[in-house]
Structures are given as structure tokens and as C-alpha cells.
Design a protein around this nucleic acid. Structure first.
Lengths: 226, 226
DNA sequence: TTACAAAGTTAAGCACACCTAAAATAATTA
DNA sequence: TAATTATTTTAGGTGTGCTTAACTTTGTAA
């Protein structure tokens, strides 16, 4: 079982993973984890020694199958805790992330499975990110586009929101925009690139920045696993 | 905020605290935490430096008010988590303790308060140990005696059980003996010092060892805080 | 194609929390 | 009381994960 620190490196590598599969640089990992380059170089060597990543000096690094399994498991633990803390224990957005960040490293497999069961095997976390199952399988996600890139007049389902800002989550909660809801794009203003949507006959104007943080799909998704 | 390690020392000192209030020895703490004497001596110095314990070399140590506040808070976190894991997430006795042992150190005040609220401000953990409230106040406990020291023919309420053995907890669960239940001492056998009790018209023979691990009172207790 | 800036690695050192072994102190017994 | 034994502390050392500073490699612009 890798240390908390090692789990965080593996998770950062998994999440930072690029679409083109090119190796990540140690610098990218360092900046993501907010530690020095030096620490990352050193850790890269250790992780490579234990077969968790593939690493060539000056060339970057990528997860091995073994490392990926661990990373996916950490992400499973994180996302289940986030959902649990928000829905069951009613923590707010700001608290949920930080708390899950700690809990993900110290929860036994058994505890996580119990939480999974309690929540009835959810497929998505509160931001719409997929929750890997016990075997590391991710649920299918429909293809999503940014709300800012939608077509006027069409209907969409809200599938995912950027999880990096609690401010955004609070705002969306306040205006009543929830995941999986159907919306209609009423208009898009050239002037400021804001998007006007219809949500249950209510008209809402979303700024460019907000519209770029909301991911929608033309098809809805099946939420439960069984 | 003290480190996990420091919290464990403070907790061990609080729990090991003697009735006569005499200072504990570093050796006692070391054995409780299963670490070397040397480590404990060193830590005693550090804790004394930060004003969490009073420590005189070769003379033993005791908590200061400040140290006690922290210890009680750790115990609050532990006992709330134990109850939560057992009742809500249905972990078994063996898992509950180890898990709580980790969770108690990384849970924010806010999270603990939410758990407290979810459980409706319980006064006792699953072993019958009192749960300190947010201010560190412990609920009143009735005077208890060991089941092995009761009088034949009298009725008692089960108040507390020794929390050091999961085996015992499993056994009590199996025979259906729960906390707060009323029992009648039917007989006590001189032969093997076992105790025969009536539990809801069912007769159960408890061995000397079991009877010494169960604490009872003649009066029942008020379970909820409000 | 070279030379130099940016990116990345190694080296040396620190804090923490532990260890074993040796030294110091306290307690016990002759 | 002195000697012996038991307890407790100090000294020196280890592994982890971080730091800054110095060095090496890589990529780019002249």
C-alpha cells in the first residue's frame, strides 16, 4: 500500500493525463501538487522503482497499469466520499472537497464499499465526474460539449460542471441548476458571449465563464448501476 | 493543530489516567502505544514544550488543561465515528475500531459536528462509553458495577461493555444482549463463577470472563441529549 | 551550429517520528 | 549506606518527504 504522498502523485498523474497520451513532465506534476520540482524528480524515481510509473529522465512520465489501478482507486474513494459528504452529511461545497482529499487516503476498501452500497452504487459524483466501480471500470459518459458551444434553440442535459471552483458550485446551487436537468438554449449574446437558457420556464443568463464551465449533452444518462 | 502522532499520545495519556491522579510514566504510554520508551521520552519533552502536558524527567507526566481539551476532542471524534460506522454504514465490530482510529485524526470540526447532528447528539458510543459534546462535557454516567459482582435476584440495566475485544462484542451481538437492556440475575455458580441471567424470559449463562466485562447499573439512563 | 535560456535533476540539508544502544538516575536490597 | 538492579533519558542513526542551490540536459533563436 503506497503512502498518502505516493497516492497523491499517482492521482495527479492520472488526472493530468493528456488526451494525446504524451508523457507528463515532472514540472507539471510539481505545479499541480504545489511542491518543488526537485521533490517530484525524486519521487518519480521511487515510483518508477516500484513499477507504478514509467519514467525516463528529462523525458517525462506516465502511469503503468499497476500505477493506474491505484490512481483510479484513489479517485473512486475521493468521489464516493464527496457524494456522501454532500448528500448524507450535508457539508457544503467548500468543505466537501478538502475533506474528501484527506478521507480518500485512509479509508479501507471495506468502508468504501459500504459507502458505495449506502449510496446505491452511484455512477457520478456531485460534479458529474464518473465514479470508478470496485473493479476500476468507469461508467460510459455521453459525449459532452461546453454550454458555450451549444446551438441556439436546442435542448440539452446538464452532465458535468467544472469541479475546480466552489464559488461556481454555490452559484449553480443558488440559481437551482442541477446536474441531469434538461435546459433549452434560448439565446447567445455576441456582445459578452453570455448564454441565455430556459430552465423549467425560468430564463437565466449565464456569463461566458460560467457557460464554459458547464458541460451538456443532447442525450440524458442512466444514473444507477443496477 | 497537533500531528496525528501527538494526538495519539495525548489520547493515550487521557485514557491511561489513573483514578488517584498520580502522573503516568513514560513507560506506560510507550507500552500502550507500542513504541519504544525512547520515543516517548522525546515526545514528552516536545509536548511539555508546547504546554500540552506537565512533565518532570523521571517523575512522569500528566495532561494540562490545554492538552486535556485536545485529548477529549480526539475521543469525541473517535466515539462518534465508531457509532456512525456501526449504525449507519454497518461495518462490523472488528472494522469499526481500526477505522475510527484513523478517521479521528483527519476529520474537521465541521464534519464531526455534522455526524453528531446526523446521529441526533448521542451520549454514548456502541460500547457504552460517554461521548464528549462539542464543549468537551461528558454526560453523567450512573455508577456501574461488573455483572460478576451483582446480587442474585436483582434487576439491572446493561450500561457498558469492555471495548478491548471484538470477540466479546461479536458474542454479545450473537446472543442478543444489547446495551440499555434490562436483565435479571437468576443465579451465580460458585463452581466456575459464571452468571446466569434472564434476558426477556430467555436464560443465558455467561462465563466469569464475560461477566467481568459487562457493566450494569440499577438505574436506566437517559440516552438523548435533548 | 552554437550559445544560451528554460526545464529538469542531483546534492545537501531539514523536520518528523521512530529505532537501538549506551548513559544516567531512581529504587531496592544486602 | 553501598551496591545492585530496574527504569528512564540521551545519543546517534534511519526512512520519508520536503526544501534551496548548484548542476545537467534539452530545445530554440541568432
Amino acid at each position: 500500500m503506497p503512502s498518502i504522498s505516493k497516492e497523491n502523485y499517482l492521482k495527479a498523474i492520472f488526472i493530468g493525463n493528456r488526451a494525446d497520451k504524451k508523457p507528463l513532465t515532472t514540472t507539471e506534476i510539481a505545479s499541480r501538487l504545489e511542491i518543488s520540482n526537485a521533490a517530484t524528480s525524486e519521487m518519480a524515481r521511487k515510483l518508477a522503482d516500484s513499477g507504478l510509473i514509467k519514467y525516463e529522465k528529462y523525458k517525462g512520465l506516465r502511469l503503468t497499469k499497476k500505477g493506474e489501478r491505484i490512481a483510479v482507486n484513489v479517485i473512486r474513494r475521493h468521489r464516493l466520499w464527496e457524494l456522501f459528504l454532500l448528500k448524507v452529511l450535508k457539508l457544503n461545497w467548500a468543505e466537501v472537497h478538502d475533506e474528501a482529499e484527506k478521507l480518500e487516503h485512509i479509508s479501507s476498501e471495506k468502508l468504501i464499499d459500504k459507502i458505495d452500497e449506502f449510496l446505491n452504487y452511484p455512477k457520478f459524483d456531485p460534479h458529474g465526474e464518473p465514479i470508478p466501480d470496485k473493479n476500476g471500470e468507469l461508467p460510459n459518459l455521453p459525449k459532452t460539449i461546453k454550454l458555450s458551444e451549444t446551438e441556439i434553440g436546442k435542448e440539452y442535459f446538464v452532465i458535468k460542471v467544472d469541479d475546480s471552483s466552489n464559488e461556481l458550485m454555490n452559484y449553480l446551487t443558488k440559481i437551482g441548476l442541477k446536474l441531469y436537468e434538461k435546459i433549452k438554449v434560448a439565446d447567445k449574446l455576441k456582445f459578452d458571449n453570455s448564454v441565455i437558457i430556459m430552465l423549467k420556464s425560468k430564463q437565466i443568463n449565464l456569463s461566458k465563464k460560467v457557460a464554459e464551465s458547464i458541460f451538456v449533452s443532447e442525450s440524458s444518462i442512466n444514473l444507477s448501476r443496477n
